[in-house]
Simulated assay, not measured.
Amino acid sequence: MESGENDEPLETRLVRVRGQVQGIGYREACVRRASALGVTGWVRNRMDGSVEAMLQGSPEQLATLCAWLSEGMPAALVDAFEVTEVQPPFARFDTFERLATQ
């Protein structure tokens, strides 16, 4: 973890995406998109068929990634999209990774 070299605010959000989002490469696409945007955190499948992601970055980075997640990739059919802002203090993530199903 690096100390904040820029003064841009860091936010953390927990996102739940419901619909046809498992078995189509949605998590891998999320990892690629988040990494390209500089967002850190994780993404995982849930046993109920949804996808859950913990996102950390600037408000602009998170808005861009959340917009992508809510629309989904072309093969995804997003039925519901929920975002919960995680209040500090929160753990700092160094990368964005795919976790095992929870």
Rank of each mutant, 00 (worst) to 15 (best):
V31T: 05
T84Q: 14
G49S: 04
M1C: 09
W68S: 05
M1I: 10
R13I: 10
E2W: 06
R13W: 12
T84Y: 07
D7A: 15
L14A: 06
T101R: 10
M1A: 13
S3Q: 08
A80K: 11
P9F: 06
E5S: 15
E82G: 01
P89G: 09
E2M: 11
L99S: 06
R27T: 09
T40I: 01
R46E: 15
E11R: 13
L99M: 12
E60C: 00
Q102K: 14
E85K: 11
D7R: 15
A100I: 01
V51E: 03
R46P: 06
L77C: 00
Q102A: 15
V31Y: 00
F81A: 01
R33G: 02
R98A: 13
F81S: 01
V83G: 03
P89E: 07
R44E: 14
Y26K: 07
A53W: 06
A75L: 14
N45C: 07
E28T: 09
D79F: 07
V17C: 10
W42P: 03
R13A: 15
F81N: 00
E2A: 12
R27Q: 13
A100D: 14
Q56V: 01
I24C: 11
E8A: 11
A34H: 05
T84L: 14
Y26E: 04
C66M: 15
D94F: 04
Q56R: 02
P89K: 08
Q22Y: 10
A67P: 00
R33C: 08
E2L: 10
A80Q: 11
E2G: 09
I24Q: 08
R33W: 05
N6V: 07
D94I: 06
A100W: 05
R16A: 05
R98H: 14
R98Y: 08
P9Q: 10
T84W: 06
P74T: 01
E5D: 15
T95D: 14
P59Y: 03
R32S: 12
M1D: 10
W42N: 05
G57Q: 03
L77F: 00
G57S: 03
R13D: 12
G23W: 11
M54Y: 00
L69Q: 05
L77V: 09
T84M: 12
G72Q: 13
A75T: 09
Q20M: 09
